[in-house]
Design a protein around this nucleic acid. Structure first.
Lengths: 355, 355
DNA sequence: TTGTAAGCGTTATCAC
DNA sequence: GTGATAACGCTTACAA
């Protein structure tokens, strides 16, 4: 038996330390601790006890180098302080941490440059997979991911990129909102979307057009207002909204932030919600914590609830499946949403019941 | 020059691949890419170009094994969906990612068992440091951290544990709230705290006692109600509150969630806020997104704003300083807070101006 | 200025 | 069953 190097003091115990302590080989100790391969029960017992006594902790770094699996996943999101993302992340975490994975969480700030830098950094860390929350892939990022680990996309599917996708049912969401508003008496319903490239926007825009047609309402081009997902775009959308002829009696906003700024913008111009115009959001990011506000008699935003935690869980499951079957065909998983009809939608001031 | 092993195809390029491609040694290539040591400018140029062409990405795993620095930090928090934590994490991320660190984010769910499991897992990953957001250390966790990497505590300082600490000025916070309520005319002000062990609770309790004394108000023992930081404890606190003699005209809740449930509990018993009782929160977790709600004429919670992002940045800086100077004495950094007087506090129904 | 060689702590393949 | 031994991909003395 070859003499083992002396124990480094101060630093953590290694397999070699345990082996030396017990006069065994590193392989035996390694097998015992990994739980695979053959080790006599008595020795195994001894090894486990010694490991415990020395405070041995496996080096997942050494293991990762050897096995070429880091057991880590990267998650990219626009902004961790937007409650939508933590809610999804929680679902992801529940599933993947049970499978032994740990998450690197990163903020892209909707900035393509930052996205690229973060992807690069995650590739350097050899993450086993990447989960993209509402990310639009820049060309540079695409190139990086060419020979990279598998990606799962949530909420936004990049064009020309084969990967697993999990998203809310945008068609259903728009239908729910349109039906809700139509039933209240609205016939002139505008739609504020996100940046035109994204899959989500295409889906919602198509659903709005189809829905309006189905309900027998006109869907003029100027009712379709392009913004982004930031509140500021809601402010800008208000001007476009008020320029429309006839003026819409209701509007679907791209998300809840945008809806809020639309409401504020309208208020500045002396228009009340829902008295003058009904406004609907998307995501229900306020709902989670604010249903607690009953006692304050808060007014709530009419919106569509994304099944955030389920989206996260489904994304995690898709990732685990992908890691198990790297060459399986790309999967798509569309989750149902639900209408949260609250206080920002009501019958129009001058109802157009018969048109 | 020793022959290099053939390139593994399909997997990522390594130093050896570049070296073989160029007929140089791995060390030369390594020096060029790491940017330290001597390499002739022409070779360096060539190496960089080849690395780029082959899509070379350094393996931080191999580097970490060699240097014994993972350049990762672990962050433990109770719940990523509590907006307080993402706001702090954002501050941390801004600072540490600029220094080349990546974050492992973990949810403990306020569960000591989970805390221990997560710390173990982070130690296995050889994080260079741990940042604890509002964590109370279990004995098991303490033991794990004995010879572990440095810890920085935010918001809650564990007893008998030398480590850097960053927190809000609890004394100032309570003083601000008490002065605010006193000025409105309140003399009977109860206080709902968190679990008695935590440093935060001790600080706030002491501040409440001292503040009440300073204002010449009685601070009877039953005005001090112990709960935890979950909304449910607010519900329970309502009963204790209504049993007090004389009944408090105002109450400080342990955080905003608790405040909300106090308000709901009072509403159920037919008591209005602030008409019958004023209620104040702590943290201002709703404020960030809900200042957007002006147009909805939302009622806001009177609370104390923690400088969340600053807390995160300060914690990150403390960690970087600690990593640079492992044996420096433990530092403490107390950040000022600010009062957010909104709609849940008002003059008491039967003012006791002269007492 | 460049190359050689050792080693970080595992896992995995062999002999024995 | 157990023990050498060779990677995994990088950094870093030290030698040339």
């Amino acid at each position: 038996m070859k003499p083992l190097p002396p124990a480094a003091q101060g630093s953590r115990a290694t397999l070699a330390d345990i082996a030396r302590e017990l006069g065994m080989s590193r392989s035996t100790v390694g097998r015992a601790l990994a739980g695979n391969g053959y080790v006599s029960p008595e020795k195994k017992q001894l090894i486990l006890a010694t490991a415990e006594r020395l405070g041995y902790r496996v080096s997942t770094i050494a293991r990762a180098l050897r096995t070429q699996q880091s057991m880590t996943l990267g998650v990219l999101m626009a902004d961790i302080t937007n409650p939508l993302f933590p809610a999804i992340v929680k679902g992801i975490d529940e599933v993947v941490s049970a499978a032994g994975y740990t998450l690197f969480l990163c903020n892209t700030d909707e900035n393509p440059q930052r996205q690229q830098t973060l992807i690069r950094s995650l590739l350097d860390r050899q993450v086993d997979g990447l989960i993209m929350l509402s990310q639009t892939l820049s060309d540079a990022s695409r190139a990086l991911l060419r020979n990279g680990p598998p990606c799962v996309f949530v909420n936004r599917m990049p064009a020309r990129f084969k990967a697993d996708y999990i998203g809310p049912d945008n068609q259903q969401a728009i239908d729910l909102l349109l039906n809700h508003l139509y039933t209240l008496g609205h016939r002139h319903i505008a739609c504020i979307t996100g940046p035109a490239q994204s899959s989500t926007v295409l889906e919602r825009t198509a659903a709005w057009r189809a829905g309006m047609a189905r309900l027998g309402c006109a869907a003029p081009q100027d009712y379709l207002i392009e913004g982004d997902y930031r509140g500021s775009s809601g402010r800008r959308a208000v001007e476009a909204l008020l320029r429309c002829q006839p003026r819409p009696s209701a509007v679907l906003a791209a998300n809840d932030f945008v809806a809020m700024e639309v409401i504020n913008g309208l208020a500045e111009r002396g228009l009340a919600v829902p008295g003058d115009i009904s406004v609907c959001g998307f995501d229900d990011i306020f709902g989670d914590h604010f249903t607690a506000l009953a006692g304050l008699q808060q007014k709530g935003l009419t919106t569509v609830d994304q099944p955030k935690r389920n989206l996260g869980q489904a994304a995690a499951q898709a990732m685990l499946a992908r890691l198990a079957q790297p060459r399986a065909p790309a999967s798509t998983n569309i989750l149902p949403v639900s209408l949260q009809a609250r206080d920002t939608s009501a019958a129009p001031a001058a109802p157009v019941i018969a048109d």
